[in-house]
Design a protein around this nucleic acid. Structure first.
Lengths: 144, 144
DNA sequence: CTCGTTAACTTGACTCATTCAAGTTAACGA
DNA sequence: TCGTTAACTTGAATGAGTCAAGTTAACGAG
């Protein structure tokens, strides 16, 4: 018998019930290799790999992949949506007020207590979204 | 000597260096009496109090009061900005995925540990913004 | 109290991310 | 190989929020 292979990008798409298209494969790889990219940046990454794709196709694929749980979107107030390939773990983001750069941070306290509000007021909470605002090292050096 | 008076809304505006206008007084009161109102709702609240005001004046005043720390804005992804009058304490929000209602929650763990990321990557963090997503009691009853 | 400065407001045009609509193409199960 | 329908294309539309230019009025100086 053959050794178990790592699943290809195409396999991952099939697994979640999505059709395998050049656009989606390229998009998923672009998002994974990029670093919290915006829609425009993703579109140009995809185009570099496979030629022309419409912006709408990118939006559509991003929604599909987000719904399928293969990518995750981050929407810091005041900036267009960004996407990342790191999913399934409960991690958060650090955003620079000055240059807008986004970096990942692990959960502040232990595993996933971020999911527990002090008093949920009867809500059934399924996700906690944390954004830390501040100045990145480069920008805070700049302003001092 | 007279007893110390509670500061009026006008006093509060003056204290932060803003001119006292009917628009701002009415806006501040509207936001404080309302419950995470959006811009349109604030505009109509203000109009009920003092008659006509332009939407732009509302935006402008909201920015001024936010910058001055008298009101705070909440911008859950996928919904227009909302404003609240509760400021200065480190509290967070619970948003219903279905109906969009927003309720306040206190910090998950103790006083303000929310401000501490596990590893700040050299950032100087000044604010942590937490949004819990879920279903409010009414909506979760509805869907079951 | 009057005046001048300038913050605050008004109207109206504009931007930009995202969505909607209608028609075409191509993935993939039968 | 074919038919169904998800995915893609182009193009127009939406909606929150901003920008610009001109007018009004708050308030400190005289």
């Amino acid at each position: 018998m053959t050794a178990p292979e790592a699943p290809t990008t195409a396999d991952e798409l099939r697994r979640v019930g999505l059709r395998v298209t050049a656009t989606r494969v390229a998009l998923l790889e672009t998002v994974r290799h990029g670093n919290h990219l915006g829609v425009e940046a993703i579109a140009s990454g995809v185009r570099q790999r496979i030629g022309h794709v419409s912006l709408q196709a990118v939006y559509e694929a991003l929604h599909a992949l987000t719904a399928a749980g293969l990518v995750r979107s981050i929407e810091p107030p005041g900036s267009p949506a960004r996407y990342e390939g790191r999913v399934g773990d409960n991690h958060h983001h650090l955003v620079c007020r000055s240059c807008g750069v986004v970096v990942d941070v692990d959960c502040a306290v232990g595993e996933a207590p971020c999911l527990t509000a002090a008093d949920a007021h009867g809500f059934s909470v399924d996700e906690a979204q944390v954004i830390y605002w501040g100045l990145c090292p480069r920008c805070s050096a700049h302003s001092s």
